[in-house]
Write a protein that binds this DNA or RNA. Sequence first.
DNA 1: AAAAAAATTTAGTTTAAACTAATTTTTTTA
DNA 2: TAAAAAAATTAGTTTAAACTAAATTTTTTT
Lengths: 156, 156
Amino acid sequence: MPEILHKGLSASLEDYLETVLAVISEKKAVRAKDIAQRLGVSRASVTSALQALGERKYINYAPYDVITLTEEGKALASEIWSKHHLLTSFFKDLLGAEPVLAEEVACKLEHFVPNQILERMNLFNEFIVQQSGGLDLLQKRFEQFCIEKQKDISGI
Amino acid sequence: MPEILHKGLSASLEDYLETVLAVISEKKAVRAKDIAQRLGVSRASVTSALQALGERKYINYAPYDVITLTEEGKALASEIWSKHHLLTSFFKDLLGAEPVLAEEVACKLEHFVPNQILERMNLFNEFIVQQSGGLDLLQKRFEQFCIEKQKDISGI
DNA sequence: AAAAAAATTTAGTTTAAACTAATTTTTTTA
DNA sequence: TAAAAAAATTAGTTTAAACTAAATTTTTTT
C-alpha cells in the first residue's frame, strides 16, 4: 500500500506529527522516548518516522538534536489535532459514545475524513443543539430515548 | 504495521471479502477481473488476496476454480456490508454529505468502527428522526439551517 | 479440434512501517 | 572528570500489500 493521504503524509506519519505537537504543548523538549510510549512503538520506529518528517520539512530534525516543528508542520499538526477534537466531541457528546471508543475512532478517522463531512458534522451538531434548546437537554432526552428503546427490546 | 482488525483480517482483506460478496450478489460467478476493476488493483493482487482469504477459510479457493464464500465468509462479509450501509446512510441521509464522499468514508470506517458507536449512530438517527416528525422534515429544516448559516458567514 | 484470446496465477520486486540488536551519543552520577 | 546509565540512532530483518512481467490454464472462435 502506498496509502498516502490529503497532504502527502501517511496516516502513520500524521500520527507521529500529531504526537510531536502534543508533546511540545505539554513539555519543553520532545523526547523520542515519549513519542514511542504514547504511540506504543519502539524508539527505532520513532527515529525513522522523525527522519521521514524531517525530509518532508514538517519538522527540523538532525540526529541527537532538539526537535521543533516547521511552520508547515505546525499548520498540519494543528489541523489534524483539531479534526481529532471535533470528531471525538461528535461521537462522545452528541452520540453519547464511550469516551475511550470515541477517541479511538477519532484517532483513525482524522486521517482521512473529508472536510465536507467534518463541516456537515459541525453544522448538524449546531443545528440539533439549537433545536433542542441546548446540549444538556438534548443529551437527557436522547438518554431517555435509549433507555426506553432497551426496555422495548427486552419486553419483546 | 500488522494492522489486524476485529475478526483477524486486515482492512485490505476485508475489502476483498466484501467485494466477493458484492460480485456474487450481482453475477453468477466471481471473476478476479471484476474484483480487480472494482478495487482498482491488479489481477495479481486479487489472486494473492484470494489465496489469503482461502487459507483463513473465508472463501473456498483453488487455482482456476470457482470461488464461493464459506459460512464464516458469508457472515463476515454481510456484517461488513451492513456496516457499510449504515455508515453511508448516516453521512448521506442524516448529515446530508455528498453521496460519493459518504461512500468513501464508510468504505474505510466500516473496517474499524466499534459496534457501540455504530449502535449509537443508529439510535441517534432514530431519535432525531422521530423528534422531527420524519426524515423529510428534518432534512428540509437542516438544509434551511445550513443556508442561513452560510448567509451569516458571507454577511460578516 | 486447433489456434487465438482472455483470464488467472506465479515469480520476483518495491515500499512503508514495524521490529530487534548493536552502536553511538548525551546525560547523569559517583 | 571519568564511569555508568539513559537515550537515540543505525543496521539489518520481517510482513503486508501492492506492482510488473512471464507463464499457465481456461475459454472462445475460426
